[in-house]
Amino acid sequence: MKETGYEIYRNLGLQNLRLLVGWQPDTGKLGPNLIDYLNNELNTEQYAEIEPEGFAYLGGVHIENNVVQFPETIFKVSEKNKLLILKSNLPRYEHHTFLNLILDVAERAGEITEIYTFGGIASLISHTYTRSISTVANQLRFKEQLTSYGLETDMNYESAPEQRPSISSFLSWNAKRRNISAVNLWILIPFYLATLADPQAIKRTLSFLNQRFNLDLDFTNIDKEINNQEMKLTILREQKPVINRYLSMLERGIMLNDDESNELSEEIVNYLTMN
């Protein structure tokens, strides 16, 4: 069924659907990698797609890892788990219209009762530090439902004058206007993994979803990625004492200065990219 601006591939009419949203790009590739993992593990099926026209820059294409990229906003569904899973590029234009279209298309699949967005936050932590998840809910009752999952639920924040709120906050606010419960989940990512992937952060988030929705997820693949990355970082620490020193400082909660942080990031990005 093709409508203006979007296409719905399957009629669903489900009750108590939960919408999971991952944006790309994202810090530590958290959003897109998390959604890809879920789609793969849950054998989701395509539900709908929103066209990029009017929302994305269409004056050319971006190339990443030698491959042409194109903005996409794709909904998949796991009927068994009552999950609607959205992976979307961040819109460049008409944000409000775009977010409302996401909610419209989601509600065409059935009754949306909860929305979860995911995003990475670069932080001055070491990769050996347990990833914490901070929550920002749009309704107190919904936040209270999430307190038993080991999430951080005492966040206080006010954006700086030149700092624009995130698209996830905007979606959550739009959802509230429709009386839909929404929560933004912010996962801490070691700053030196911000431009790479952080499989530990993904596993931490998957664990929450697994527990929340009884998904019975298989973590084998993500564990392999974690082990692989940890092994490489261990080798790097052995090869480069200065990197080991910086990481040890972070592990002990000691702040690095700008030069040290930059050196650490550069070395780790180069090493993990090349190996």
């Binding site: 409000h96 901070s134 809910a137 107190l140 005492d154 004058p161 995130s166």
Partner: peptide, 20 residues
């Protein structure tokens, strides 16, 4: 303003989005 502008300010209190 919603149709015309991106939000300019966000306030979170005790993990609740209180102001956009």
């Amino acid at each position: 303003p919603y149709e015309f502008f991106y939000p300019k300010k966000l306030v979170i209190k005790n993990s609740i989005l209180t102001e956009l």
